[in-house]
Design a protein around this nucleic acid. Structure first.
Lengths: 153, 153
DNA sequence: TGACTCATGTCAGCATCCTGACACACAATG
DNA sequence: CATTGTGTGTCAGGATGCTGACATGAGTCA
């Protein structure tokens, strides 16, 4: 009980491995998206809008794990390039739901295909069962951290 | 063959889950490290030095997945607070190997214990076998991305 | 109607990290 | 000795994301 637990070998630390895997994925995504003229953040917005159109700036920020302010910058860039559009005035409230333009839809299809290939390469060493299990484990880890806010020692 | 593969349901995308888990972990680590006066980046350096002392600025940068320039900033902050030390002049070459001071060692022990508790909470839903498997899967995914640099379509 | 709460959008300032560039130290090679 | 290549430290500038603050619009309730 008096033994103080510490982070052990880094090569076997799930936290460190999580960081390594996420960094490697981000780098690989950047490598395939940059030739298409998209950053990872911009692709994330397109993908989010592809799955659920008419999302507000704040909603997209939550989906991409950034602040509203940062998302506003990303949206402005996409809007200037004509990949997304949002009304100048809000129909109701302050939220101005964003949606993909035809050009944005086309860009998303190319980008999503490229990212899917990256994901496929990342998962290539895993069997279908292992793939499914990995999803479940990641969900469990995520929920264990976000669902409970009271460490209490 | 003509069917274009795309990223599927985000809730089951390993990439998206990886990002979610890594973000949740980073936020949880920040929450326990900030009261101790440390950022996640600073903690990373202390942990790296605790596992392998006398590392150069460039070496630490590789270990923490940032550039040498960024790591230099972090090191300067830790040095000003007396948690790490490095010789003013290099004994050999340009590298000035950094090491933990006694104060840094103490800070590391507290921080590492706190982070270990966060990791433990994150892994609490997993059995020992599942924990071990998760490590292996993450390593496989990481290596699949970093080991091969030629997607070639 | 008015007060209160909540979510959203936006502005300003700051922190962090990056890219590009350059100089220095060492090893290998001729 | 001179040249080349690799690794390292550092400076300058810029891109990106964050915290803090404020105003607007909608819903709730007295």
């Amino acid at each position: 009980m008096s033994q103080v637990e510490r982070v052990g070998d880094l090569a076997e630390s799930v936290g460190y491995l999580l960081k390594q895997a996420a960094t490697a994925l981000h780098a690989s995504m950047d490598a395939v998206l940059r030739p298409q003229g998209l950053t990872v953040s911009q692709y994330s917005v397109l993908e989010l809008l592809g799955h659920e159109p008419e999302q507000s700036n704040a909603g997209l920020a939550r989906g991409a794990f950034v602040t509203r302010q940062s998302m506003n910058e990303v949206l402005r860039g996409l809007q200037d390039r004509g990949l997304v559009a949002r009304p100048d005035v809000a129909e109701r409230g302050r939220a101005r739901p964003t949606h993909l333009t035809p050009a944005g839809q086309a860009a998303l299809e190319n980008a999503s295909a490229a990212v899917a290939r990256v994901e496929k390469r990342m998962l290539s060493p895993l069997s279908t069962t292992e793939h499914t299990e990995l999803i479940a484990r990641l969900i469990a880890c995520r929920d264990a951290l976000t669902g409970d806010g009271a460490p209490t020692g």
